[in-house]
């Protein structure tokens, strides 16, 4: 496959992490229309009511959906027709982030090299990543023996070793209980500060938006209703729907 761009997130201000240029997609009755630039090096929360298109937006960026029209660019590179695995990004889903039959080391190793050709240095990095997310010594464990929170930590560890400039998170904490969510949010902030990667976080939780996001994209029925920094998001009065969302945090 194509060579993975190895640059870390030192993208300049004018090179957006994600650029959606006239992206259009019809799924069932809903017509999605996305335009905009997601800045590099920041945490952008994508939020909105159920069915507004949060996951669709993420899937378009990740490559799980092909737009009917328009272009998707990552760090200036047109990836519209690129297979998900060939895009310079990492993903963490709400669940099913790990192959159930493989141990954590192998699961994370697959993120480094898809055919598992690992160097000694890679192995050290995998163990270090596990340690960083609080799973030191868990290399040989199978996902089935872990708690939900531990499985998400393992997924973060994999994102860490992949060193991609963009990290997409699809409701990564939704399946966890509230106490655990706070701890995981802290972990995510920490990782963001260490790597400087651009992060796009899909969430329906206003609290998470307030806690984590630098920027906010608010979707409604397949369109971007608001896109701006978090303070502007909290202060806006044009959309009562958004005000209500902010007030519920």
């Amino acid at each position: 496959m194509t060579a993975q761009p190895k640059q870390t997130a030192l993208a300049t201000e004018n090179l957006a992490a994600v650029e959606l240029d006239g992206v259009r997609l019809a799924l069932g009755d809903i017509r999605f229309a996305f335009d905009g630039r997601i800045p590099a090096g920041r945490i952008t929360a994508v939020t909105g009511p159920s069915g507004s298109g949060k996951s669709t937006l993420l899937n378009l960026i990740a490559g799980f959906e092909m737009p009917d029209a328009g272009r998707v660019r990552l760090a200036g590179q047109d990836v519209t027709r690129l297979h998900p695995g060939a895009r310079p990004l990492s993903l963490v889903f709400q669940d099913h982030n790990l192959f159930a039959h493989l141990d954590l080391f192998t699961n994370i190793g697959l993120g480094v090299h898809p055919a598992l050709k690992l160097t000694g240095e890679d192995r050290t990095r995998i163990s270090a990543a596990l340690q960083r997310v609080g799973l030191a010594g868990y290399e040989g464990r199978k996902p089935g023996t872990l708690s939900g929170g531990e499985r998400q930590r393992a997924a973060f560890a994999r994102a860490l070793v992949r060193q991609r400039p963009l990290l997409l998170l699809d409701e990564p904490f939704a399946a966890l209980d509230p106490g655990l969510r706070l701890a995981m949010a802290d972990l995510l902030s920490g990782l963001h500060q260490e790597t400087g990667a651009s992060i796009v976080l899909v969430t329906h939780d206003p609290g998470e938006v307030m806690r984590l996001a630098d920027e906010v994209i608010y979707l409604s029925t397949g369109k971007i209703l608001f896109h701006g920094d978090r303070h502007a998001f909290c202060a806006q009065t044009a959309h009562p729907e958004i005000s209500k969302f902010v007030a519920s945090s």
């Binding site: 496959m1 998900p84 695995g85 990492s90 099913h96 697959l110 993120g111 898809p114």
Partner: peptide, 11 residues
């Protein structure tokens, strides 16, 4: 169980 994950990791 595996298609999305395998695709995202380019396995």
């Amino acid at each position: 169980r595996t298609t999305r994950l395998a695709a995202s990791l380019n396995v």
